[in-house]
Design a protein around this nucleic acid. Structure first.
Lengths: 333, 333
DNA sequence: ATGAAAGCGCTAACAA
DNA sequence: TTGTTAGCGCTTTCAT
């Protein structure tokens, strides 16, 4: 492999001068710069990133933890982050936390050990105390997406789940629905709780008794939506609309409803959350609340890049709006 | 930050001995090992990966290029790779090539510069010649998924698109279909070509004139399926089945068919490819060919890990089978 | 079994 | 503007 020394010899200058050119800092005369650049291309020199990082404590690597890269929701987010990284000339180390505190904290440690310049974290649990200490001590800047229980983030991006759910519920209410089922995700997730709050806000505003809305909790899986809907139907519950905790649940709901011979949206309206990949392919096409995942991923990296460039974003908190996507699964009652 | 020197002082031994413990190589007495391990935990020492990498030329980072992390198809693959990486105690640098030769080659260069120990590549284009040279010179092991035009890969994993398409076409033929449309992807992709070959093989076997199948090329987008189907319908083409190049195209086909008042699968059967996330949510649920993306991602890392451990997998070529997933979008004619 | 010493490739003070 | 020098933190001969 060709090193900086080879280049310096070939160009007849010192290593420092070459470094000044490659790292693009410090004064170099036009003449030498040209000579050096020629030597670099001729030799095909590529600076050793590890030596560089060891010396300068800068790697240009950004670490990224999401819940699960394999899920379309986070994949989109990662896609946005990656595009922004490329633009900012950074590489991206990526890891999944699987909504488990230990997995999440281990993932963070891995990234810190890798000497990432900064971290973008989408977590579902508080950071383990020992890891939180390490983060604080290392001074590595963090952009949090979603929660920020321990104030570790230099900047926080929140997705407005509250308003999203509030708007969705309002939509149902406006369409005349009063007997509504809410198939919610687990209370352990902060997004679930935010959505619940949004729902209640609409109910309060509209002077509707909270009891009118039957809430059931389960996992964010199609299966939960399917089984719960069947059980509700079979036990004789009457309802005109189902607000599904997310689009996966909604898919199960639709499946169950159809299986029992119900016509959608005539007999029952369904609304989802996320605007996941399959939402518009459901039949009827699902009315749902879009989460701007890609934009959030991009934004997180942009904020982090600014922090790394020395901008002081302390206490920055950005709330990104959700958007009601009206398709065909909700009708007037 | 605490370094190896701090640990050695605290434990009253030399740096070398500490290194022998952390790197787990060389002889260390039980007594000293214990003392050192205690010092490590007490001080919270974490070895500096860059110094380590600089010295030993091993980073335990695996680089991964796919077409687009944001797409559910590749996200699944990445998910499998990541799980395997975790198991093998490696980190994963990930980049997208966006099916563009320059993007792909630049992504590879980025990963090489990052001193990845090995690469897993899913490319759509031949590697640029300059990059191919660098790969060969660096000796960095590569596992290719899909194509291998330049024999850069120490191991190659292929997905059996040929048999998948052959089987799917056979399924249509067995159901009595003779007037079939194939909405194919771009010929530039090798997977597209493999599928075409599979289709022709079935036709040849069944003694059906190739001309019976009308082939149209377009992008792997829903929109292509939608527009092309409408245009075919409007120009009075008669057909009983559509073989869509992938599930996205199939979604568009179904949309268009329904929009023209056709009943599925009674009037027209549709079959897809990929078994993408939304396939089972389509209505009727899509009969399609599953590609084992997650398994492929996992397998690629496992092979690479073996190579990195010194196993000689030269010339290894594994073909992973696809699987026909029968749902409800195809019926007997 | 352990330690001393050299050096991986680079950058950043400092000097000139 | 450029070169000299001194490490960054670690691993790895080579002695002992």
């Amino acid at each position: 492999v060709v090193t900086i020394k080879d280049v310096s010899k070939r160009a007849g200058v010192s290593k420092s001068t070459v470094s000044r050119v490659t790292a693009n800092n410090g004064y170099v005369s036009e003449r030498k710069r040209e000579i050096i650049e020629r030597a670099i291309t001729e030799l095909g020199y590529r600076p050793n990133t590890m030596a560089r990082g060891l010396r300068s404590n800068r790697t240009n690597i950004i670490g990224n933890v999401v819940v699960d890269v394999a899920s379309p929701f986070y994949a989109q987010m990662v896609g946005g982050s990656q595009a922004a990284c490329r633009q900012a000339q950074k590489s991206m180390l990526i890891s999944s936390g699987y909504a488990d505190q230990n997995d999440e904290s281990n993932a963070i440690m891995e990234l810190i050990d890798r000497a990432c310049d900064g971290l973008v974290l989408y977590l579902e649990n508080p950071v383990r105390e020992d890891v939180a200490d390490i983060i604080r001590n290392s001074g590595i800047p963090i952009v949090m997406i979603g929660g920020d229980e321990r104030k570790l983030g230099r900047a926080v991006i929140k997705i407005d789940n509250y308003s999203g759910a509030k708007t969705a519920m309002q939509f149902l209410v406006d369409k005349g629905h009063r007997h509504i089922i809410h198939l919610s995700g687990p209370l352990a997730y902060r997004d679930t709780r935010a959505r619940l709050l949004g729902i209640k806000a609409t109910l309060a505003d509209a002077n509707i008794d909270e009891k009118k809305v039957l809430i059931r909790h389960g996992e964010y899986f199609e299966k939960f939506g399917y089984l719960e809907t069947l059980s509700l139907l079979d036990s004789g519950h009457k309802f005109t609309a189902v607000f599904a905790g997310d689009d996966d649940i909604a898919a199960g709901v639709i499946l169950a409803l159809k299986e029992r011979g119900l016509h959608l949206p005539k007999d029952v309206s369904v609304i989802g959350f996320d605007d996941n990949f399959h939402a518009r392919h459901l039949s009827p096409a699902l009315t749902t609340v879009r989460q701007p995942t890609r934009e959030v991923g991009r934004l997180a990296i942009e904020l982090l890049a600014q922090i790394l460039d020395g901008k002081d974003l302390e206490e920055t908190e950005i709330t990104v709006p959700t958007e009601l996507i009206v398709r065909e699964s909700v009708t007037t009652v």
